[in-house]
Every structure is written in C-alpha cells, then in structure tokens.
Design a protein around this nucleic acid. Sequence first.
DNA 1: TATGCATATACAAATAGTTGCATATAGGAT
DNA 2: ATCCTATATGCAACTATTTGTATATGCATA
Lengths: 183, 183
Amino acid sequence: MSLRHALLVSLSRKQGTGYEIANEFDRGLGYFWPASHQQIYQELGKMAVERLVAFTRRQQPDKPPKKIYRVTGNGRKSLIAWLATPVDMPAVKDPLLIKLFAGDLIPAQTLLDEIDRHNAINAEILSRYRSIEKQYFDNPDALPATSQFIYMTLLRGITARKAWRAWALRVRRFLENQAHNAS
Amino acid sequence: MSLRHALLVSLSRKQGTGYEIANEFDRGLGYFWPASHQQIYQELGKMAVERLVAFTRRQQPDKPPKKIYRVTGNGRKSLIAWLATPVDMPAVKDPLLIKLFAGDLIPAQTLLDEIDRHNAINAEILSRYRSIEKQYFDNPDALPATSQFIYMTLLRGITARKAWRAWALRVRRFLENQAHNAS
DNA sequence: TATGCATATACAAATAGTTGCATATAGGAT
DNA sequence: ATCCTATATGCAACTATTTGTATATGCATA
C-alpha cells in the first residue's frame, strides 16, 4: 500500500524510468520497501492514470522507448499528505520463529544449521551496512539534512541486525545444549 | 505461504476449531505470523481438501456446528519436511522508514510526533512481553523443552523491541535538533 | 557458438491477504 | 430498548504480490 509513496519519494528526488527506479530500489528505498520491477511498472501505470505522476516518452533507436516519469503537483500534494498521516508499525512475520516455536519436533542440529545459515546472511547484510556507513556517513553532522535523514534509516538497519545477532547467539547456546542433552 | 505451517504447528500441539486457533493466534504464533480469522478458515478449508488436516463436525444446540480440526499423518509428514527446509529471512517493510527517508519534505515536528506515537506502541508491546516473561519464564531452565523453545521466540521479541527503542531515542535527538535549527 | 547479463517494458495467471458483509444466539452493559 | 461482546463459520470483492513469459538488441564471457 505504501509502494506508491515510496515511488513518489524516489521521483521527488529525481525523475526517471521504471527501470532506473527498480535498480535504485536495490540499494535505497528497497531496503525497507522492497518491490520487483513488475510491481513498479504496474504501480507507475496506475499512478499515471490517477495523475499522481506523468511521463514523457523518449524514442531510442533499436531499443524499446523509455518512459521518463515525474511527480505532478497532485502527486506531490498526495505525498505530503501521506507523510503527515500516521502509519502502522509493521507486523512481524518470520517463518524462522515458527520453526523455533515447534523446535521440539525436529533434531536440534537441524535448527542449529538453519540459525547459522541465517546468521551468515545477517552478518553479510550488517557488514554491507557498515561499509556504506564508513563510505558515506563517516562524519554525518557535516552532511546536508537530506543525507542525515537517510543516515537514520541506515542506523535502523545496523541496530536491528546487531540485535538479531545477539539474539541468535543466545539461541545457539540453547540449541547446543539441547543437541548435547539429546545425544 | 507459511500460514499453513503455523496452523499445522498449532494443531500438532492441540486439535481445535478455526475459531479457537484464531483466538490463540492473538497470543501465540500470531506474534510472528499474524492471520485474521477469515484467512485461517480459508486455509483450513484448503488444507482439508489436500488431506493435511481432517475435521469432525460437532453439532451444538442453538449454535453453529463446530469443526474440530486435527493433523493427519500426511500433514505431520509435510510439517516435518518443511521444518527441515531452509526459509528466507523476512524482508523489512516499514513505512516509517519511507517517511524518515523523505524527512526533509515535512516539518521535523510532524516526524517527532510520529516517532513518539510508534515509541508508545513499542513500549506497550515490550512491557507485555516482559510481563509474559515474568509470569511464565521466570526460571526458564526448569521448564520442559517445548516451553524453552517458545521462550526463545519471546526473547526475539524482547531483543527486537529494545533495539527499536534505542534507535528511536537516537532519531529523536536528531529530529529535536532539526526542529530547533529550523525555528 | 552458446550462455548470460544489461537495457526497457509489459501481459497474464496465480497466490496471499484485507475488508466488508451475513448468519444465529445469548449474555452483559448503557 | 439498544449496543457490544463472545461464540462459530463463511462468501464475495478487492488489493497486493509473486511467478512466468514475451519482446528486442548488444555486449561480454565461457
């Protein structure tokens, strides 16, 4: 439901094609509002019908024509209005916790492997966040406000991933104990 | 996609009606796999067709008949198989972060209010988790394994909510500064 | 030479999830 | 009297998201 707002934010910063936005989503807004290119194309299409965005078609020799989207006055108004209305906290939805909840139904080692696998992914994401921090936000106070806001979202990722790691360590200890007692 | 597995877990512990499961979801599995009663009824219906669960109809005078569901051998097998296959880490999907990302488009005070609102909700959830911890998991080592696994999922909630609070405090400081500088 | 990737958009089908409504009764609160 | 809550299930419509496919080209890699 917020995809359109994410798209309005993206297009507010810089106009662009669906393709470009889809790519940018892999490094920016997509960290907290993921969307596939199909979804983005569809949503941009609907938003154009509703006059929240408009596009200019640019022909290219030997390639499909680009549609360069921009936010309309209408779109901007709608974005500002949304930014001022309360949003829900996201619900937790994590299959790993279902597995853990039913942990007594399978060997502890199976869960241990799964925790380790998740931990490896988590560590990779955390280190990616940290290298972004080092590269772009080394001295955050010196940055323009726009970037400092973005830094706050990055900090969210870092805090959450660290907390996840701490919890996973605790779970590991417990599972190792379980595996040991079972043998 | 994992709703059916959550339902199999729930019914593995204790057979019951869709209504009962829907209620239990508000305190148990629903913390990490939320589902409405409509969704639960529909999914149980499909699962019955696929012979993962079976039900017994119990007539009641002056009330609609109950359907008491239980897991079939097939269902149990399918659950065990799922428990042993890797699952994805959930994607982050948080509209508040979209707002923060676009924070320079609205007054800092608007965001401050929103952060405070979320913080109040977060605090309430955290304190609920803590009272559950005090009530049921005061001495976790003494509990049966089944309960200890459930305790691990509770710890996930507590860790995540604490991390959220710490981050929110950081964001508050930043926003207060922004609000101050703007005036 | 074949495979895959980058560019650029889009339809179609399926699954997942939300929202609103409908039925039926009984007890408690206003 | 009226409204709300609990019990118990379900249909229908809609929105959101995923998955698979199609088109068309050029470049790089194996």
